[in-house]
Structures are given as C-alpha cells and as structure tokens.
Amino acid sequence: MNKLRSPTIIDVAREAGVSKSAVSRALLGQGDVSPETLERVLAAADLLGYVPNAMARGLVSQRTMTLGVVLRDSTTQFYGYLQAAMQRRAAKFGYEVVSVTGVDDLTVEDAQKALRSLIALRVDGLIVSSAQLPGEDLVRYAQRVPIVVAGRAEYAEGIVSVHCDEEDGGGQIAEHVVKLGHRNVAVLLMSSDESPNGYTRGQAMIRTLEASGVTVHVMELDAYRAPVGLAVMKTLADPAITALMCPSDITMVNVLEELRVQGIPIPGRLSVTGYDAFGTLAAPFFGFTSFRLPVEEIGTTAIDRVIELIEAGVTSEKRTAIPGVLVPGRTAAPPRR
C-alpha cells in the first residue's frame, strides 16, 4: 500500500489560489495579508489537513512556539495538576507544551535524556519539575535554552525557580498543632535526597514545634512511597504522643489506613495532619487537616518566568516562593485529657 504524501505549503497555495509566499505570511502571521486571503489560506489548509512543520518554521522565525516540560512522576497527582496549569497558561501566550514524564519515578539518567531530547526538538524554553535532577546538571543546558525549575527552590547559578514557600507552610501547620494543645508530637521526615520539599517542610515543622516547647519525635522516611506501619507503631507505643504530622496527604492517607486497621480513633487517640490539600484529597468529604500547596500558581508563574526569559532574556524574579494556605479539618483536634 502506497503511503499518502503529506500536503505541503505548495498544495495549500494551489488550493487557495494564492502564491506560496502569501500562504507563508498568512500562516506565520507576518506581513500584509488581507482578511480574504487569510480566510482562503486557512480554509485550504483545513481542507487538505496541512500541518506546518515546526522545525522549518523555527528556522525562519527563530521560534517554534513550543515549551518542553520534564515531570518526575505521572502517577502522583501533583505533577498532573502542575502540567494542566502550565498548559492552560502557555496556551494563552500561543505556546504549545511538549512533556516527558516518568512512570513511578524519573531517574537522573532519564531526566537528562529527556532534556536532550526536548532541546533537539528546538523548544524555545524548558520547565523542569524533578527533584532527582540537581541544579548543577541544568547549568550547562541553560546556556543553550532558557530553563525554569518548577516545584522546588533552586540555587544553581543562572537557574530560575518557582516553588511553594515550604518554610512558611511547615511553620503554619505546626503552629496549628501547637494551638490545639499538643505537647508531644511525632513528625515523619522525608529524606532530603528523595524530596527536598518534603525535607524542608518537615524541618520547618520541627523548628516551630521545638520553639513552642513541644517534645518532637522525628521518624525518618527513606522514600515518599515508603511503608508507614513502623512509624505508626512507634508513635502508638508512646502514649504521650498525641499528634502525628505527615509530609504529604498521600502519606497521611497511608497512616490513616494503618490506624483504621488497628482500630485507633482519629482524632480521639491521635491527631494526624498532612500537606498538599489539592485535587481529590482536598474534598470536604475527607476533612483532612492539611496545608494547601499552591500548585496552580506554581505552574502559571513558571510559564510566565520562562516566557520572560525567551522574549526578554531576563526575568522579573530569580526565585519565587509562593505562599500556601492552612486547611483546618477533622483529623486534628485538641488532645484528649
């Protein structure tokens, strides 16, 4: 079977009854093209199923109007909501988004390969949301294409970042626990290598609790999907502990399930807090005590920053820390006396 030939700009010109240069100007939005000619060109392109070659268009305009996005884990809702926010914002500026996502997790090698592949596609800018890819690895690519890190603070030279103010978030939810009257609190602390954000917010929780005279019991998690059974058992083994603070809502759900299986009433015996509060888990039905991560604002601002770099060569702010909001719920209450 013969493969059908893709229509070219010459075919569009013939169908519309105009010159090739008129078609080029009309599709690129350049030069003086009458409304009638534009309408004929667009109608012909639609009829023939003509799709402009982004690579060729980029050679002419020096822009492909595409942004590359690298996301750590497509199975974690944060990255899905972040990608949706970025796509909506990019579309308003006329940009398309091409993304590469990990499944379960994106290794350093996979992330580096994704960066090289997106650069080869001549994207105008890159947004990276992967805790596994250190800023030092991004610096050499930043010399070739504008790069913004979304979701974590990045301090490498020449790299712009947009992230939640984790210090403020961890402090706010810890203050809430203190105000409820808890004086012995367990904190699940994420490894800094596994999750820089989780580690930062956890350390902020610990500092705030200790500054208020609370006895803090730190329990380390090696991974954000690590089993929580051992941490729960250690918490329950000490009757003085009345609250357990988790680094994410997903971790909190696992903790709550473990407590349900053991028949431990929440918050009667133990108050539990999370962190994220967006998407399905933020529904009032669950009533989680948590802290809302500003994922929509992070995605929108990341797009703004990378477009500033593309179009002006500079950005209005190198590091943008966006505040979140405390979400009181039914999973945390004053300790039972």
Rank of each mutant, 00 (worst) to 15 (best):
L59Q: 05
R122T: 10
V327R: 10
L106S: 01
S74Q: 11
S130K: 07
V214M: 08
P146E: 08
D32L: 00
V214S: 05
L221D: 06
K3C: 06
R337D: 14
L42H: 13
V97I: 14
Y95L: 06
R337L: 12
G181H: 03
I303K: 00
A223E: 14
H163F: 11
G49W: 08
D110K: 13
R225D: 12
M1V: 12
M252H: 03
L293D: 12
V187A: 04
A237M: 10
L133T: 01
L293H: 15
R269D: 03
Q83Y: 11
S19Q: 05
V178A: 04
A120P: 00
I266W: 07
L189R: 10
Y224F: 14
Q132V: 10
G68N: 11
A13V: 01
N254G: 15
A333D: 09
A91S: 14
A312F: 14
R319E: 15
P239H: 10
D137T: 10
D124W: 02
V23S: 00
M86Q: 08
A26T: 13
P328V: 01
A142P: 12
G17I: 08
R63D: 02
V23R: 02
A91R: 13
R89F: 05
I127F: 03
T235P: 11
L259T: 01
K179R: 15
F286K: 11
I9Y: 01
T76M: 09
L28W: 00
Q30A: 14
A44W: 00
Y199F: 15
S195E: 05
P146W: 07
Y155G: 11
H163C: 10
G102W: 04
A43V: 06
P146A: 07
V123T: 11
L281W: 12
R144W: 01
E96G: 15
R260L: 05
V272F: 07
L82Y: 06
A302N: 07
L82T: 02
T273H: 08
T101Y: 02
L230T: 13
R319M: 13
A211G: 07
T320D: 09
M190L: 14
S99N: 10
M233T: 14
D32A: 08
V108Y: 13
V216L: 02
G213N: 02
H176M: 05
G287M: 09
V139D: 05
L281M: 15
T75Y: 04
K113T: 15
D32I: 00
R144C: 03
